[in-house]
């Protein structure tokens, strides 16, 4: 009698996919728009994952990564997503303080270089990163500034476009780079380069596309990978980058499993998959960021990408407590 009951139970359990806990057939990923763009990594890596594991991925674009975090916070009590993909190290504290991410350390974690580990508790697993850099137009600038100090020189009057740290993540990373280099006196540094700055743009889009590409100023704050795009698709090495001598600064992007995710096991598989070479080698030419997996061979156009081992350290957990003061100081320095 008991055995008879067991069979239908087994069937029901199998149909639910909850036996053994690793039979999830579905996975919902929230990400930002450029990940799902035609030329983004999404259209390539998602089918790869689906085929490999027989899991159907429901990938939902949330617009910007800031929108994605807000959405996850809103859904905290009843999460719809299993994975948040594309949170960077200067905005992750928002997700951490609202406790929307669960801990998971992928099996291959040891190959990730120490300075790219985002979180000791592994609520986020890094998948790509980029060095902050000044990108310049070599047709207008022969000798770019090589250090923060150089930038104070009056020959750079109105020469640099920066992004607003309040509205742009490269802008925030650049401000933090100056914090890492100058400590609490970083606002004095901003006062010193005020004349060199043409304008503070609200977004990378406006700065790079709207202004820099139109020749408004010969230098713009971007990533050291930007010139690789122009080399790969426009066949020109006109645009080059420089990382300042005081030391580099990286921006890291990661993905994490949502606290209370319905398909936790599928999510773990995806996080593991993100670190494999087949996923990682798609990143350089889709995201124009460097893969965290050091075994991936970079495309030829990446010969123009500057990197450095001398990376300035800034404890990202300080953001939760110090960001307000830093931006207030920055606003005061920039004359807002």
């Amino acid at each position: 009698m008991k055995r008879l009951l067991l069979i239908p139970l087994l069937i029901v359990a199998l149909a639910c996919g909850c036996i053994g806990g690793n039979d999830d057939k579905e996975l919902t990923i929230y990400t930002y728009d450029s990940f799902v763009a035609e030329w983004g990594p999404g259209p390539t890596v998602v089918p790869m994952f689906e085929e490999k594991y027989g899991i159907t991925v429901n990938i939902v674009s949330m617009g910007s990564s800031g929108d994605m975090i807000s959405r996850a916070i809103l859904e905290k009590d009843d999460p719809k997503a299993d994975i948040l993909l594309g949170i960077n190290d200067v905005q992750m504290y928002r997700a951490f303080s609202e406790d929307v991410l669960a801990e998971y350390r992928p099996d291959a974690y040891e190959m990730i270089p120490d300075h790219l580990v985002m979180d000791d508790q592994w609520r986020l697993t890094p998948f790509d990163y980029g060095y902050m850099a000044i990108v310049y137009d070599s047709q207008k600038v022969d000798n770019p500034p090589t250090s923060f100090e150089d930038l104070k020189d009056e020959r750079w009057k109105d020469s640099l476009i920066v992004e607003d740290p309040r509205t742009s993540s490269p802008g925030l990373s650049f401000m933090l780079w100056t914090v890492a280099a100058y400590g609490d006196d970083f606002d004095d540094y901003w006062r010193a380069i005020d004349d060199s700055i043409l304008t503070v743009a609200p977004s990378w889009n406006t700065a790079y596309y709207g202004m820099f590409m139109e020749g408004e100023a010969p230098m713009v704050v971007s990533y050291s990978t930007s010139p690789a795009y122009h080399l790969e698709y426009e066949d020109t090495d006109r645009y080059k980058s420089v990382i300042f001598e005081e030391g580099g600064f990286v921006q890291i992007e990661g993905a994490g499993i949502v606290n209370g995710a319905e398909h936790e096991d599928a999510a773990k598989k995806f996080i593991d998959f993100m670190l494999t070479e087949e996923f990682q080698r798609e990143l350089p030419l889709t995201q124009f960021m460097l893969p965290v997996n050091p075994n991936v061979e970079l495309p030829a156009s990446y010969e123009i990408v500057k990197t450095t081992d001398d990376v300035l350290d800034l404890d990202r957990t300080l953001l939760a407590t110090h960001l307000d003061t830093w931006t207030d100081d920055w606003i005061a320095a920039i004359g807002g």
């Binding site: 309040r166 503070v200 931006t327 606003i331 920039i334 004359g335």
Partner: peptide, 26 residues
């Protein structure tokens, strides 16, 4: 966006300040 993009960070409207406080600072 227009205020930020064409004026630069030196000019702040109330809307910019609201965004800054809510989205950026929490």
């Amino acid at each position: 966006a227009i205020v930020l993009a064409l004026g630069g960070a030196r000019y702040t409207t109330i809307e910019v300040a609201i965004y800054n406080l809510a989205m950026f600072r929490g």
